[in-house]
Write a protein that binds this DNA or RNA. Structure first.
Lengths: 107, 107
DNA sequence: TTGTTGGTTGGCAAAATAACCAACTAACGA
DNA sequence: TCGTTAGTTGGTTATTTTGCCAACCAACAA
């Protein structure tokens, strides 16, 4: 694998990595229904606000979210809606796993 | 977020996490063109075979790959082709980032 | 100006990942 | 049986990620 190819996959991995955390997946899912401020997300997730803020900046830095400050609050929204397509496929994987789990259990 | 919801996002994150590495992304991409044995992937990736083997088991354990031993070799293949849809969206994010980077540079 | 609210940043400790080497197993051939 | 090849597993070390607390910043109100 040459250097250019390696860089291509590293760039892709940075985007995927940004999604690779339960709270961050929740955020993406929630923002698919419209923008939310940090405090709303903190209430839903139930973690320290600094933790939520860091998750949001991971997603923003990856190019998945945009932020906008209005008054005291900062609102985040999805920048790339196609990111939602992930969920369908991931659910498919999980359901296939469940079926396989059941089949293995029967053996 | 209740416990059941948390578990849902944890399950999804496990699948996404399995993809969140440059070599594993490369493997998924390569297997989209057909099954490959471990040694072929090792040659392409250029890492120790034990490293490649561990990457493959991460993807298999997540339910993304299937493996089959034939003779001395173990062949891996994609179990869930829809995983490829990820790439299109990820490329879109990267291109949007590049445009934004150019725009920021112009400021 | 002072206080308050909403959010970000720095720092730290704990946990998870990653890569290699070494040891091992399985399948095959001589 | 013995050696070889293909791959997996265990162990170790280095790096990254995570989450909280504390300190800080920005916008607004009193």
């Amino acid at each position: 694998m040459d250097n250019k190819t390696r860089q291509k996959y590293e760039a892709r991995a940075r985007v995927i990595k940004a999604m690779a955390h339960p709270s961050r997946l929740f955020i993406v899912d929630e923002l698919s229904r419209g923008e939310r401020c940090v405090c709303e997300l903190r209430d839903m997730i139930g973690a320290d606000i600094s933790t939520v803020s860091k998750h949001l900046s991971v997603l923003r830095d990856a190019g998945i979210l945009d932020d906008e400050k209005r008054g005291l609050q900062v609102f985040y929204r999805l920048r790339v809606p196609c990111i939602l397509n992930f969920f369908g496929c991931v659910e498919g994987v999980l359901q296939a796993n469940a079926r396989r789990g059941a089949a293995v259990a029967k053996q």
